[in-house]
């Protein structure tokens, strides 16, 4: 399965890069959510972000995901500066280049699983039949081929997150962003979701994932540690890439 080595230097291209980004919130006294962070993601890399609550993980995620723009510094996706884009172009970019997976799943409650997966394609004007075929393929891919017409309320937490992952993959994004994707799931279900992420990684996808749990983070190639809006340390996870990496269980918990 994992024939290619995603991390080989010199061969891979940078898909997204943040350079010295700062994001400051002004509520009374200014809060420096991000205070000069530089991070680039190579094609096919799997990066985990850890750090204490309020350290700016979600803020960084939103910048990479084009939901937000930095006050200073640049974010580039495929070499294009996000800051320079119009709101409408950023929305386009979110639809085509980014796939979001959230802690709280964030499915459209009144739509079925298949329809949820279809949504990004609707905004991207994909033809109806193609959309449905692709939604089916994607849901089969995440193991929900038999739950196409279930509403989110009729699915378990793990199943909902699978639907969300299928939706994130709808437009073949360059980058998969996941903000605590296992945060609302029990350990076992969380592990299943991580298996899925590993498979996607093995397929060559670029993934950025925020997590509080060390065990989850260790599925990635490297762990970025944020503290108070600054990049504290980038830790390479040795031996994690192999599917057997999950054997390294029982390591220290998060904080």
């Amino acid at each position: 399965m994992s024939v290619h080595e995603p991390g080989t230097p010199g061969e891979t291209a940078t898909v997204v890069a943040a350079t010295d980004v700062r994001r400051t919130y002004h509520l009374g006294e200014p809060v420096h959510a991000l205070d000069g962070v530089s991070l680039s993601l190579e094609e096919g890399s799997f990066t985990a972000v850890m750090g204490p609550s309020g350290s700016g993980k979600s803020t960084l995620m939103n910048l990479f995901g084009c939901l937000d723009t930095p006050d200073e510094g640049t974010v580039e996706i495929d070499g294009r500066s996000v800051t320079a884009l119009s709101g409408s172009d950023r929305a386009r970019l979110r639809g085509t280049e980014i796939g979001f997976v959230f802690q709280t799943f964030n499915l459209m409650p009144r739509l079925t699983a298949a329809e949820n997966v279809t949504m990004p394609m609707v905004f991207h004007d994909v033809v109806d039949e193609d959309r449905r075929a692709r939604a089916r393929t994607l849901l089969e891919r995440v193991g929900l081929g038999d739950r196409l017409d279930h509403a989110p309320s009729e699915l378990s937490g793990g199943q909902r997150q699978r639907v969300a992952i299928a939706r994130a993959l709808a437009n073949e994004p360059t980058l998969l962003l996941a903000d605590e994707p296992t945060g609302n799931l029990d350990t076992e279900t969380g592990a299943e979701i991580m298996d899925l992420f590993r498979e996607l990684h093995d397929d060559g996808r670029t993934i950025l994932m925020v997590t509080h749990e060390r065990a989850i983070a260790e599925h990635a190639d490297r762990i970025v540690h944020l503290v108070d809006g600054t990049l504290d340390e980038i830790e390479e996870v040795r031996g994690s890439k192999a599917a057997s990496g999950r054997d390294r269980s029982g390591s220290e918990g998060s904080e």
């Binding site: 995901g65 409408s88 929305a91 386009r92 639809g95 459209m108 437009n171």
Partner: peptide, 16 residues
């Protein structure tokens, strides 16, 4: 509001 946020996150433009 939340649904609107979701739609925006998955690529809906203002005009959509």
């Amino acid at each position: 509001t939340r649904e609107i946020g979701i739609m925006k996150a998955i690529g809906a433009r203002k005009r959509d």
